[in-house]
Write a protein that binds this DNA or RNA. Sequence first.
DNA 1: GCTTGACCCTGCCGCGGCGTCAACGTCTCT
DNA 2: AGAGACGTTGACGCCGCGGCAGGGTCAAGC
Lengths: 258, 258
Amino acid sequence: MRIGELADAVGVTTRTVRHYHHLGLLPEPERLPNGYRSYTLRHVVVLARIRRLTELGLGLAEVRDVLADEAGKDLAEVLEELDADLARQEDAIRERRARLRTLLDAGELPDEGPVSPELGALFADLEHASGSAAGAPASPMAARDREMLALLETTAAPQDRERLLGALRGALDSPEAVARAHRAYALLDDLADADSGDPRVAEAARALADCLPVELLPADEVVPDSHDSFLRAFYADFAPAQAEAIRQAMRIAGRGRR
Amino acid sequence: MRIGELADAVGVTTRTVRHYHHLGLLPEPERLPNGYRSYTLRHVVVLARIRRLTELGLGLAEVRDVLADEAGKDLAEVLEELDADLARQEDAIRERRARLRTLLDAGELPDEGPVSPELGALFADLEHASGSAAGAPASPMAARDREMLALLETTAAPQDRERLLGALRGALDSPEAVARAHRAYALLDDLADADSGDPRVAEAARALADCLPVELLPADEVVPDSHDSFLRAFYADFAPAQAEAIRQAMRIAGRGRR
DNA sequence: GCTTGACCCTGCCGCGGCGTCAACGTCTCT
DNA sequence: AGAGACGTTGACGCCGCGGCAGGGTCAAGC
């Protein structure tokens, strides 16, 4: 048989057959005078065996080991390992699909990108209670806050994530708390072009401090390393007066904690 | 922030960050006078978004498209596609694991490599009824037959596979049928070194013809293409007298069919 | 001033299982 | 004698980075 006939008989491509030759999985057959490979039934049998193994999910290197070790003793071990590996993959895919389905079922996807369902629910609370129904002028500060929360959630360790979500739920449990948050956003938005010595800074700081969940301070437990540089980058992202208000709010809330 | 701080903050490696730069997923930040990249909070936010998307299973090219298309409109489509894709993968893995489990539960793995559970059961029928209990001298012909059946099963189309298995089950349903098969094996084994004109050829052919399921003839329906070359290779794999016996058996069984 | 160690830079190879050219020789049919 | 279907070797592409080579930069300690 020539290579195309072998390949057709087993249902693979000639490229695959030559690949197996290259890897030493399938022995090279005799050559005809013109250089063509000339296969026998033995090759068909071995190639079909290789296919049965690869279709189970074995890698070609593992197939080679199994074929070399003759008997089926080692094969059982390999198959056990493979099963465990596949189990892990299956679980990973199931998790991802579960998250995907909750995201898709939720309907709207936030601009921040897909976020956990729990955090998405909190965002929705903040959004829907936003006062006016549809065309509410989006607050830049609110958007930034959502960004930051999404960021903290994705970077935090699982238990920190739990604390974060719990604290946020506690801080947003009443319509009055949501209203306070929106007032703080508005006051901070007003400081976008202000000087850092502006008298409205203190007011915005007090309003913001009222919204900060005490459990979250200090923040360095949520973002353990990278403290200095991250915080610097954080404050640098705001207008000077806004950054000053946030700093003051942190101090106020920190005092309230003790 | 420098690249290591950014990477730590989001939980990736610096290599990953640079890779995203290379692919255009994450914009290159300003450089410090020494050539170091200097990141801002904006980069942290975008990097975290990228991670959320990749952790859902999106490819980096898809992530780039989603980030470029700004709003969450296109994202929903991509996620739907992704879910369908993951569903296919999950099914494939489940199938493989199911086959693996039946193989592992079956205990013994045949030398031919892992074969379908149905065919494995047929092999077991042949094996256990092999006359003597444990140390039965293995018949080379029987081993070759198992090889061929395994081969035919893996290369046949699903409906051909069904016909094949059904025919085999029908042909092995009684202890007498199994005994006939073993007699045919033994007679063929005896022809290993015989001349193709040996008088025992006719006897072996009759014995073999009694075992062949009528439904399987002609074989070119099981192995549709590659007929000529495959059959030539098939007969070439046997000793001359054996090949002649098999050819005669095919003719006898073919006559019995009409 | 010199070393040490922790960073940073660019750039290229490797992985798995082939698909897909490229550039060429060989056979068969008409 | 040309077309078209085979065969040959060889190299690159995919994906998401990891790892290495071969450097530069900076702060701290001697």
